[in-house]
Structures are given as C-alpha cells and as structure tokens.
Design a protein around this nucleic acid. Structure first.
Lengths: 189, 189
DNA sequence: TCGATTTGCCTAAAGCCATTAGGCAAACGC
DNA sequence: GCGTTTGCCTAATGGCTTTAGGCAAATCGA
C-alpha cells in the first residue's frame, strides 16, 4: 500500500481548509482522515490528539493573520494604519471563517506566549503610536480596538446584522472613522 | 420506580446551570441525564434532540439577560442608560458565562425573530434616543455598541486581558466614557 | 545491493455521546 | 376500580476519540 505522506504540517493545513468549509468545531480527526483517505488511527502518529490538532490550526491561523496584518500595516501610519488593520482583520475572517474561529481558541498561557498572538498585540500598539497615548490609556485603547474589531466580525459572521438593510461595509467604515476621531480626541486633551 | 418529574423547563434551567459550570459546549444530553439521575433516553421524551436543548438554553438566556437589561435601564437616559446597559451586559456574562455563550448561539431566523433578541435590539436603540442620531447613523451606532460590548466581554472571558496589569474594570469604564463622548459628537455636527 | 532498522499506516478494541424503537408501570380521568 | 395516557427504562445502532499491537514500505549501513 502506498503511503499517504502525512505530516503534522499537511494535516494542520488541511485542517484549516476543513475548518473554513465546515466550521472549526466540526473539525474532527475522523473527518481529516477521510479527507486523506486513510484510517483514523493513522493520524495519531502525527498528532497527539484532537486538541493538539485544534491547537495547531489555531497557531497556524494566528500566524497567517499576523502576516497579513503586518503586510497591510507596512508603510502606513495614523488613520491609514488603523483602517488597514481593521480591513485586514475583517477580510481574513470573511475569507477564512473557520481559521478565524480557530484563532480565537483559548490557548494555555505558555503556548499563547510563544504564538503569533504576541505579534498581534505589538501591531495593535504600533497603530496607537500614531495617536500618542500614554499608559494606561494606551492599554484601554488596545482593548477597545480589539473588542470592536473582534466583536463586529463575530456578530457579522454570526448573522447578527442581517436583520437590517444597512450595508455592513458602511457601518464598518463609519466605525473605523469614529474610532479615529475618538483616538485623536484622546491625544489632544 | 419514582418518577423524576422532568419537564422541558426544568431541563432547560438545569442545562443553563450546567453550562455555567462546565461551559456551554460541554452541555450534553448525557450530562444532563446524569444530573437528574435518569437514563439518557428519558430526556428524549421532553427534548427533540441535543440541538433542541441548546436552543432552549439560548432562548432562556436571552430572555433572562433582556430582563436584566430592562431593569437596569428603567428610569435612566443618556450616559446613565449607556453605562447601565453596558454593566448589565458584562455582569451577566461574568456571573453566567455558560448562559452568555448560549445567548450567542446562532438561531434560525424564525426562532430568532420570536426570541428576546428582538428586545435586545429595541433596548439598544432606546439608549440611542438619548443621542438623537438619524438613520443610517443609528444603525451604525447600534452595531458599534453591540460589537464593543460583545467583543470586550468575549475577550475578557477568554482571558485575553490577563497579560497586562491594567484593571479590566478601568478599561471598561474608559471605553464606556469614550462611547458616550463619541455618540455625543455624532449628535452635534 | 541487500539486510536491518525505522517509520507509516493498518486492524482491533474500548469508551463516550446521540438517537430511535419498543416495553412496562405509574399517574390521571371517569 | 379500570382504562388510557404518559414517563422512564432496556436495548441497539452508529459516530467520534484514543490506545495497543502488527505488517510492510522506506531508509540506511555494510
């Protein structure tokens, strides 16, 4: 019998694709085995268990999203950077809903500290350099930006905005504009 | 054998408690049966299936949260109402993390339209009466408030704010203040 | 190039969860 | 008190996870 050529990396990538197709919480060792046309047990040579698979997908998604955001931020500052960050974030979630959900998986502190989540935090703070806030306002602002972006994307993906005719893209632009105004108001007291 | 006295209502309530203890996605027909000391199959006389149980818990949580928010809003307006709404929301999530997660379950449109989710939307709009915005700004603002509140609570519950020493309560107040300023700035152009 | 070792994938089996079918006994209605 | 309804049970199927143990393919050393 020909070998399938499984590796943790290929499994993770395929798991990410599967997540986008069927939802992150439908990602299962069984479904992944089916996709590679091997038996379930075969995957256990490459993955510790189901949780391990999910964690790998989460780390992969965090990395990919951080790369995108970094690319979007390159050469931008101020409101430009804010909008680029916001769009990179939202676009990723819409293109890859399963991976986005994966990126929100709760990681244990050690894993989280070694993940691309750290880069996300750094980049958020980098945006705020355009508004020179001092601590603890900067931390408050980081939390607010994270809340708005995650919250919006999460509600939008969950269908929470389908009840009104207003174009979600317009709301998104309105919100980004508002955040810019707000941060600038905090800059100049 | 003595009957356990199961009803959909008791099962729903117990399911909500279970959710708070072990997490909403750990709520299972089996676990609930164990809690009532009956066999698993017994529950199927009262619940269509596992999804039905989860939906009932979600509707229950939405109702309970809407009641709390309504009580918090009574007799308040403007920034006062905004802060009361925000706190009611966050406090509920912290007291009842499982129920809060349940309230975020995606419901099919018909169910959603008949749920307390409608009241949530109305109450959010009611708060904005204190800032007289016109459409489509009002819708944008509704979406923004929903995003910030849900996003913050979601990140806080997920441990996303544990890496910094800044008190989450302070960030929360800062954010609510900021939202008030922002909404007022949109009121007077 | 061939034998030994490593490695990859398989079969088998146990446990937990969801769901359905069919049965007996408790509660209720007259 | 008797019949009907209703509640909970036993039994069985199928899916997902995980572990143990085995055979064959790939790789490496002589």
């Amino acid at each position: 019998m020909v070998r399938a050529g499984l590796t943790p990396e290929r499994l993770t990538r395929a798991g990410a694709e599967l997540a986008d197709e069927v939802g992150f919480d439908q990602v299962t060792v069984s479904a992944l085995a089916r996709r590679f046309d091997v038996t379930i047990a075969s995957l256990y040579s490459h993955l510790k268990n189901s949780q391990d698979l999910k964690t790998r997908i989460a780390l992969f998604a965090l990395e990919e999203l951080a790369d995108r955001v970094a690319a979007a931020l390159a050469g931008r500052a101020g409101k430009d950077a804010l909008a680029a960050f916001a769009d990179a974030y939202r676009d990723y979630a819409r293109e890859h809903p399963g991976r986005y959900a994966a990126a929100r998986l709760r990681l244990d502190p050690t894993t989280a500290a070694a993940s691309a989540g750290v880069r996300h935090a750094q980049m958020t703070r980098a945006i705020l350099r355009g508004y020179d806030l001092t601590e603890p306002d900067q931390t408050h602002a980081v939390r607010m930006l994270g809340s708005v972006f995650h919250g919006y994307v999460s509600l939008e993906m969950g269908g929470g905005f389908s009840h009104t005719a207003v174009d979600p893209q317009e709301s998104w632009s309105w919100i980004v504009d508002s955040l810019d105004v707000l941060l600038r108001s905090w800059t100049t007291p």
